[in-house]
């Protein structure tokens, strides 16, 4: 499989009053034209990994890596100006909460058109047509009305689909989706996933899917990285996630209530200090 993105030994550090806090500690993985899931609890560094790839971590945060290569070009060495043409156009990111990612005082249409025209030389009319087309692609009924609406008039599910439409307009090679469905209902969740799945298949896009929902990731992704305290503790094929070996993964799986296996008490995760000391597992192919 051809490698789109190669991340080697990525560290994210935040200096604080109590010394340096390492949010991500030496993570390595590659991404091909596949759906790669990153799971872990909050604070495990999964979102920071996604943001570090796009160099979105601002000082005082420090990002260090041996390399973050996008098709052979090391993003760590790119000047900020060139980085801007990578963001959005080649790698884009869907953030967790659509409410905080859309501009509240701009109509949705204006925002999508702006995002599109920033990356292309299209005229306003072309951009409008393209935006309508994208909104339809993420199964928004009545896209003309949505173009005129403001973000607060949209529900969470609609907002998330709008974000996805906006991110996909420049036709990126890689999409980083940070908990794209955790604010959504199960029925809408399915729709959003189907949209992303279709894009991976049709366009040969690489997808990094960040989530804390193990069942969802097992169902939806091809490969899964399990993160704990800034390190990758286990890598496995998504369909074999339920046979995972690491006690942390097992603990997470067992703590989920299940409809088909009623229990009086749920298993509570017992944390072992060895898990965070153990070196990161490399997920480079």
């Amino acid at each position: 499989m051809e490698t789109l993105l190669d991340v080697e030994n990525l560290w994210v550090k935040f200096p604080s009053r109590h010394g340096v806090f390492d949010a991500v500690r030496g993570v390595s993985f590659t991404l091909g034209r596949e759906r790669l899931g990153i799971v872990g609890e909050s604070g495990s560094g999964k979102s920071m990994t996604g943001r570090a790839i796009l160099r979105l971590i601002r000082p005082p945060g420090i990002v260090e890596a041996d390399q973050i290569s996008l098709e052979g070009v090391d993003l760590m060495k790119l000047p900020e100006k060139d980085m801007r043409s990578v963001r959005g156009q080649r790698i884009s990111m869907v953030m967790q909460d659509p409410k905080f990612s859309l501009n509240p005082v701009m109509t949705i249409g204006d925002q999508i058109i702006e995002a599109y025209r920033l990356h292309t030389t299209a005229t306003k009319t072309q951009a409008y047509e393209k935006s309508l087309e994208m909104l339809e692609a993420v199964s928004i009924r009545d896209p003309e009305r949505v173009m005129r609406a403001y973000p607060h008039e949209m529900s969470g599910g609609m907002g998330q689909r709008i974000m996805i439409a906006m991110m996909l307009i420049p036709n990126p090679e890689i999409l980083i989706a940070d908990e794209p469905t955790s604010a959504l209902d199960v029925s809408v969740q399915r729709q959003v996933l189907d949209i992303m799945d279709k894009l991976v298949k049709d366009r040969g896009m690489g997808l990094i899917f960040i989530s804390h929902d193990l069942n969802l990731v097992a169902d939806f992704c091809d490969r899964v990285l399990i993160m704990y305290a800034g390190r990758i503790v286990e890598v496995c094929d998504a369909d074999k996630l339920h046979e995972a070996q690491h006690p942390y993964t097992r603990g997470l799986l067992n703590s989920l209530p299940r409809l088909d296996q009623p229990r009086d008490r749920l298993d509570v995760l017992k944390r072992d200090p060895d898990w965070s000391i153990a070196p990161s597992v490399s997920a480079r192919l």
């Binding site: 909050s42 997470l252 703590s255 989920l256 509570v268 995760l269």
Partner: peptide, 14 residues
């Protein structure tokens, strides 16, 4: 809450 914390809270409520 996270799934591991969810399990703790659900046990507490039970």
């Amino acid at each position: 809450l996270d799934v591991s914390v969810q399990a703790e809270i659900l046990n507490l409520l039970a």
